[in-house]
Amino acid sequence: MNFSRSLRTYLALHSWPVFLFLYAPLAIIVLFSFNRSPVSVQFTGFSTAWYTSLFHNQDILAALGRSLELGIGSASLGTVLGTLLGYGVYRYRAAGLAWLGLLVYLPIIMPSIVFGISEMIFFTYVHQFTGFLSAGLLTMGVAHVTFQIPYVALVVYSRLVGLDRHLFDAAQDLYANPWKIFFHLVLPVTRPAVVAGFLLAFTLSFDDFVISFFTSGPDSMTLPLYIYGAVAKKGVSPEINAVASLMIGMVLVAAITNLLVSRSKEQAQRPSRPWLRSH
C-alpha cells in the first residue's frame, strides 16, 4: 500500500521530464508556425500568414495530394491482402504452417533502410529487363503495400485468435461453405480490426520517409519527401512548421475520435444485468 503510493508519487514527479521531452518539441513547432518572423529562433509576434501562404503553395498541395493518393491507394490494397493473409495464417495455424507467421513478422523487424534499398534495386532490375515499373508513385505504392501487409495481417490475426474457435465450427455446422464463412463470419467479426489495420496502413504510408525516398521517382514527391527537401535546401521555414502543425492536429483529432468511439462502444457492449424471465 505504502509502496504503491510512493511509487505513484515517484512516477507522477519523474514522468514530467519524459513528457517534456516528448511534447516540448511538438509545442515549439506549433508555436513557431504562428511566428511572424520567418526566422525560426525567436518569436516576434502572432501571425497566421504561414498558413495562408501554405494553402497557396502549389508544390506543397501537390505533394499532399500525392501522399493522400498513395496512402489511401496502398492502404486499401494492403488491407485487402493483409486481411486475407491474417485469416490464412489463422486458418492453417494448426497445419504445420507456423513458419508462415515468422515470414509475416520479418518485414516488421527488418530495418526500413535495408527494405528501401532492396526494393529500389529490385525495381531497377525489373525496369531494366521488362520496361515496367519505372520509379514513381506506382513503385512507391508497391513498396508501401509490401510493408503494410504484415501489420494488417497481425492486427486481423490477433482479433481472430481472441475469438472462440468454435465459432468457425458453428458456422460450418450451420451449412456455411468456406466462402460463406469468410463473408458471413470472418469479415463481420474482424471488421474493427480491418478498419484499425487500414488506418494503421494509411498512417504508415503517409508518414513514411525512408522507403519512399529509395523508391520514388522524379515526379512522385510526397509530403515527407517534400519536407525533407525543403529543410535540406532552406532550413526549417515557418511554412514547414505550419505543415507539421496541421499534421499534428490531424493525428490528434483522429486519435481522440478513435478513443471516444471505442469507449462508447465498450460501454454499449458491457453486459447489462442478466435479465431472467420469471416463469
Partner: peptide, 27 residues
C-alpha cells in the same frame, strides 16, 4: 460438415457475437 444435415449445440454455445439472437437462430 456444411453438407451434413446434422447440427451441433457446442459446449461453449459458440453464438455469433456480431449477430443478435434472431439472426443467430436464422443463420
Amino acid at each position: 460438415p456444411h453438407a451434413r444435415n446434422v447440427n451441433t449445440v457446442f459446449q461453449s454455445y459458440a453464438l455469433f457475437p456480431q449477430l443478435n439472437v434472431a439472426e443467430n437462430i436464422a443463420f
